[in-house]
Design a protein around this nucleic acid. Structure first.
Lengths: 192, 192
DNA sequence: GTCTATATAGGGATAGAC
DNA sequence: GTCTATCCCTATATAGAC
């Protein structure tokens, strides 16, 4: 009975690999994420990694960013626009965000890349991510009854608040900073 | 007539060096700030740098952080606590912050370090910086008439808003995001 | 497809001349 | 005090065996 040897890889397929890659980039930044670290995190050797990602680290990061963007489109932006009950859609956004960022224990890779040195290389992806989020939220707030300008301002406050709270939570090593801030933002948005 | 040769160094003394170092760390992060880049930014060779900072890059970053912390203590935290007119002290904080971050064109090095891979190495400095800021602002808001809990929440919103706006401004490559957010925060704080 | 071995470049850091 | 030359290590990336 021939049995396929148990693969040492932590993720069988390419799709299963991306989350592991994402964690390495989140924890160590683009520069700090050495191939050695990536090797350990994925259980794959350099040869395998370059076979899957001929473009090397740059391609890995780009695909991780694309996957994250896709997740937010599906789980946040689209629901914001399509929800029959706008308020439910917004509430869903806050829940999804809290879930995604592990209630403040996980940083935002897009934010890390925005501040980091690799910024220029991924500038377009970073810009588009926040732009899409801001536009989706602004539109939802308009539907919820806010005037256009007020909605845009509030949307900017929400996005900045989330990103800033992630920074503060990481700085204080206290995830509750994020939880508290998110709760206040949700309340503010629901005020009207 | 013996004349001292014009020094190629961009900053004669150690104190004049720190701002240049800070810019390199801001632009490239701790990992990305190679000694080659630092050499170019300061006009000093490696030998000189190690003569001034025997602890190498780690010491350079630590001293830059300490200098930034000192600047905020002198120009923001102390004025917040000592201003006879509390509202004037708070207004002064917003002006100083806008000035320091070049109206959004400059990122926060402490925030960069908080999210970055070198986080653990500078964890204490990063934590203390935000803690001191938060406490100073909370105390000022109390004096301005806010209840303790409300002041703490608002203070957290302001700090998160500032940090987040810096991330968004950098991501969008549009400093106005920061200017707008700062203006709204100032208005919110002055509401009571 | 996955590995090991290797190539090449650049990193931080040090020694010693001046 | 500042420089140049050098050390040693780790980085990314590639080649080729299996």
């Amino acid at each position: 009975m021939r049995k396929k040897a148990a693969t040492p890889s932590l993720a069988a397929n390419r799709a299963g690999l991306l989350p592991h890659l994402g964690e390495v980039f989140r924890e160590h930044g683009y520069e700090g994420a050495s191939l050695t670290l990536i090797t350990k995190a994925t259980g794959l050797g350099k040869g395998s990694l370059y076979h899957l990602f001929p473009g090397g680290k740059q391609q890995m990061a780009a695909e991780v960013l694309a996957e994250i963007d896709g997740w937010f489109v599906r789980n946040v932006f689209v629901p914001l626009g399509e929800a029959e009950d706008v308020r439910a859609g917004i509430a869903h956004m806050f829940a999804a965000v809290d879930d995604y960022f592990r209630s403040g224990r996980r940083v935002c890779l897009v934010g890390v890349f925005a501040l980091g040195a690799a910024r220029d290389e991924f500038a377009a992806a970073v810009r588009d991510y926040f732009k899409a989020w801001g536009e989706a939220l602004t539109a939802a707030l308009c539907r919820a009854g806010y005037a256009r300008a007020e909605a845009a301002a509030l949307s900017e406050d929400v996005l900045a608040g989330i990103q800033g709270a992630l920074v503060l939570a990481r700085a204080a090593n206290d995830a509750k900073v994020f939880t508290r801030t998110l709760a206040r933002l949700k309340k503010r948005v629901g005020a009207k």
